[in-house]
Computed example of a mutant assay.
Amino acid sequence: MVSLDTLRKLALSFPEAIEKPHFEKTSFRIRKKIFVTFDETKNIACIKLSEIDQDVFSAADKTIIYPVDNKWGKRGCTLIEMEKVNPELFKDALTTAYFEIATKKLSKSTRLDDKK
């Protein structure tokens, strides 16, 4: 299980990530681009992945991580059941979503910082 507090802590640990409301949801963004939203009423996160990464993470368990059931899902929007997801799997998926949205320059500098 992953809580909103854990999601918030992880999301805001990324360089330039900020939290802002997105309609009735909480969103985390980099330079105005959303990489994850959280629906507190449904306890579901929605992350933005590439099509390949979406397939990889969904393969872990399609009842916990799965594409949104519409055109957004075909564009990489992926739902995660927060009560069921393994915290390490969630962290990997969220990190992947961050790098999917981050600029190439920001991604490169962040990955270089990790090696220090």
Rank of each mutant, 00 (worst) to 15 (best):
M1R: 10
M1V: 10
V2K: 08
V2S: 07
L4A: 09
L4Q: 08
L4S: 07
L7C: 10
L7D: 07
L7K: 07
R8P: 08
R8D: 09
R8H: 09
K9E: 13
K9D: 12
L10Q: 15
A11R: 05
A11T: 03
A11P: 03
A11Q: 01
A11Y: 03
L12G: 10
L12E: 09
F14T: 05
P15V: 08
P15F: 07
E16L: 06
E16M: 01
A17M: 09
I18Y: 07
K20L: 04
P21E: 06
H22R: 01
F23N: 06
F23Y: 13
F23D: 01
E24G: 10
K25Q: 08
T26A: 02
S27R: 00
S27T: 00
F28W: 00
I30L: 04
I30Y: 02
R31C: 03
R31P: 00
R31D: 12
R31H: 12
K32D: 09
K32C: 00
K32I: 00
K33F: 00
K33L: 00
I34N: 02
V36H: 01
T37D: 00
F38P: 00
D39H: 05
D39T: 02
E40A: 07
T41W: 04
T41K: 14
N43M: 02
N43Y: 00
I44V: 15
I44S: 03
A45L: 10
A45T: 11
C46R: 13
L49P: 01
D53K: 12
D55C: 04
V56A: 08
V56L: 12
V56R: 12
S58C: 12
S58D: 03
A59K: 08
D61C: 06
D61Y: 05
D61N: 15
D61R: 06
K62F: 09
K62S: 14
K62C: 07
T63G: 13
T63R: 13
I64P: 05
I64A: 07
I65D: 04
I65T: 03
V68Y: 14
D69T: 09
K71F: 11
K74L: 14
K74N: 13
R75P: 02
R75K: 15
G76A: 05
G76F: 04
C77L: 14
I80F: 08
M82L: 15
E83T: 11
K84F: 05
V85P: 06
N86K: 09
N86G: 04
P87A: 11
E88M: 11
E88D: 14
F90M: 07
K91P: 00
K91W: 02
A93Y: 06
A93S: 11
L94F: 03
F99L: 09
F99S: 08
E100L: 06
E100R: 12
I101L: 02
I101Y: 05
I101R: 03
A102T: 04
T103L: 03
T103A: 08
K105P: 01
K105N: 10
L106Y: 05
L106S: 04
L106G: 06
K108R: 12
K108L: 12
S109I: 15
S109E: 15
S109K: 14
T110W: 11
R111M: 14
R111V: 13
R111T: 13
D113Y: 14
D113K: 15
D114R: 15
K115A: 15
K115I: 15
K115M: 15
K115Y: 14
K116N: 15
